[in-house]
Design a protein around this nucleic acid. Structure first.
Length: 558
DNA sequence: ACTGCATGCAACC
DNA sequence: TGGTTGCCCTGCAG
């Protein structure tokens, strides 16, 4: 562009500053271009001219143009307005006051002062009962409920300490985890790239990654109920795979994209998946709202696809009732979780539609009785229906909890503890961080979903990434969590610190380093076995701090 | 140690 | 319906 021409065309430039005393050295800060879009190079040029004192050459009045105002005042990166700034102050995140609360999504306050943050219940909302309570229920709530123990303490053993881990095990973020149904120490993990990991977390270094099963995101995995040597996986590449665990050889049961890439509007992805062993079918659902049934014995699709959610919307979760094989639960991006009768799977014939305010990431029947429902929705609320035989118009409880959607995160899913006979313990990772002794950490939360009580929040100073993927072991007091590309195994503190166990607390570092985690875990060699005690964190003084338990002591701090 | 880009996806115009 | 945007996010390259 010719400078001569521009000189005559440009109006006067006014520069606003935070304070008059500020020097030009601070001028590389964010620039608020209120007078419309100006390219970066242009605005820089203007600044230079303004500084040179040549403003009169571009006098706006002579050219009949209004002056351009360039504000160098500090602006909020969220709302782009001045007077405040959102972001981390040390390890504490300061919200933008112009936005609704990041936790409960209500306007008028920020996360810092959110009422759901200071209660020990972490924000339980009694769901609206529209005069549906009968006298019996009132008696129960008023006289019996208060005398009931909140949760049977004997059943609550929280795996609160990292026992072993594989750092950067996957080359992309972990999307799903599954424990082997019979071999206690085998953990399966799927990732965004389509790879499937098999790890023996007691022998730690016995790990394998199968890279040729899927070509993109592994969304769900389930073991074959009749042969636990094989596992099914549903992927965004539009296929279901059935893989032999020993050999890694897999067969494709179904391919929704037989003709390859025909544009984004035609590419079908498989998300929700479960197995109904009674009926011998694998159920999968796609991103257009359809459900498919695949016969396990013949490995072939049975019947036509059935529209079970809004046409064109993603069905992210499927769950077969553990007790009543006729009942199916689905959830998806149309903001509904739906209960179906397997004998009548037909568009529009769901038994119940459970409404949510946002996308439903997951919906599960309770693992033992199958009579409760727990859902995770992107409106930052867990919802619990205490009985599928009761009134399903409204959830029995809503628990406000930070687990927003984010482009870079695997969607959070609250998972039942399959060992808890009272069916009240659930685990879910937390999005927002908390300032723990100067480190911003994202805990993994354990809830008593029968009361909304936050039973425990576990974290480790070395894990600074968010852990959206969590799974509790079907028999042992073990939690597996997937955080970014790494996998962590948590055990109860006592167990972890016992002499026999101590030697087994191993961290394996593998894969290409990313800055965040290499800083914490050291990154000298591929597959080197680092003892956890060697780990350092600049903000953490002692290893003892690693785990903080019980929400009660933290009351008032939050 | 920065910054910028691509990612990939729901929400909101 | 299509285009644009994005609160605590990822990973990588320059």
């Amino acid at each position: 562009m010719a400078p001569q021409r521009r000189r005559t065309a440009f109006p006067k430039v006014v520069i606003e500053r935070d304070t008059d005393s500020e020097q030009s050295s601070s001028e590389d800060e964010e620039v608020d271009q209120e007078e419309g879009p100006v390219s970066e190079s242009e605005s820089q040029e203007e600044e230079v001219r303004a500084e040179n004192g040549n403003e009169e050459k571009f006098d706006a009045r002579k050219k009949g143009k209004s002056p351009i105002t360039i504000s160098l005042k500090k602006v909020c990166k969220v709302c782009k307005k001045g007077g405040h700034e959102a972001g981390f102050k040390g390890a504490t995140y300061i919200d933008c006051p112009m936005k609704p609360c990041f936790l409960c999504k209500m306007p008028g306050h920020t996360t810092m002062t959110c009422p759901h943050r200071v209660t020990t219940e972490h924000g339980v909302i009694s769901a609206p009962h529209r005069n549906t309570r009968n006298p019996l229920e009132y008696v129960f709530e008023r006289q019996l409920r208060p005398s009931m123990p909140l949760i049977k303490p004997a059943h609550v053993v929280i795996p609160d300490q990292v026992n072993c881990a594989v750092i950067r095990y996957h080359s992309r973020r972990v999307t799903c985890l599954e424990f082997h149904p019979t071999k206690n120490n085998i953990l399966l993990s799927g990732d965004k790239k389509g790879q499937v990991g098999v790890w023996d977390f007691c022998k730690v270094s016995e790990k394998m990654v199968y890279g040729n099963i899927h070509s993109c995101i592994v969304n769900n995995m389930r073991f074959n109920p009749t042969n636990d040597g094989t596992v099914y996986a549903a992927s965004s590449d539009g296929t279901i795979s059935c893989t032999d665990m020993e050999t890694g050889i897999s067969v494709s049961l179904m391919n929704l994209n037989p003709n390859g890439w025909q544009g984004p509007n035609n590419w079908r992805m498989l998300y929700g998946m479960d197995i109904n062993s009674e009926k011998g079918v694998v159920l999968v659902a796609d991103n257009f709202g359809f459900l498919y049934l695949v016969d396990i014995r013949s490995n072939s699709k049975s019947g036509d696809a059935i529209l079970i959610h809004k046409k064109g919307s993603k069905v992210v979760g499927l769950h077969c009732n553990p007790i009543q094989p006729e009942l199916l639960l689905s959830c998806g991006n149309d903001h509904f979780a739906r209960i179906w009768d397997m004998r009548r799977l037909e568009a529009g014939y769901s038994l119940y539609d459970l409404a949510h305010r946002r996308v439903v990431n997951s919906a599960y029947f309770s693992p033992l009785s199958g009579s409760k429902i727990l859902t995770t929705s992107q409106d930052n609320r867990l919802r619990i229906w205490d009985s599928i035989f009761g009134n399903l118009d409204y959830p029995s409880r809503e628990i406000v909890h930070s687990h927003d959607f984010n482009r870079h995160l695997t969607p959070f899913r609250a998972e039942w503890d399959p060992k808890d006979p009272s069916e009240s313990l659930a685990v879910i990772g937390r999005y927002i961080s908390e300032n723990y002794n100067g480190a911003a950490l994202h805990p993994i939360d354990f809830f008593d979903i029968s009361t909304g009580q936050l039973v425990a929040e576990v974290m480790d100073p070395n894990i600074t990434t968010i852990s959206p993927v969590n799974k509790l072991h079907p028999r042992d007091d073990v939690l597996a969590s997937g955080s970014s590309r790494s996998i962590f195994i948590w055990r109860p503190k006592e167990e972890s610190e016992s002499v026999e166990q101590k030697d087994e607390r191993k961290i394996i570092v593998c894969g290409k380093a990313d800055k965040k985690q290499s800083r914490k875990f050291g990154d000298d060699s591929e597959d080197s076995d680092d003892d956890i005690s060697k780990l350092k964190h600049k903000n953490v003084k002692s290893k003892k701090f690693a785990i903080e338990l019980t929400p009660y002591s933290r009351k008032g701090k939050r």
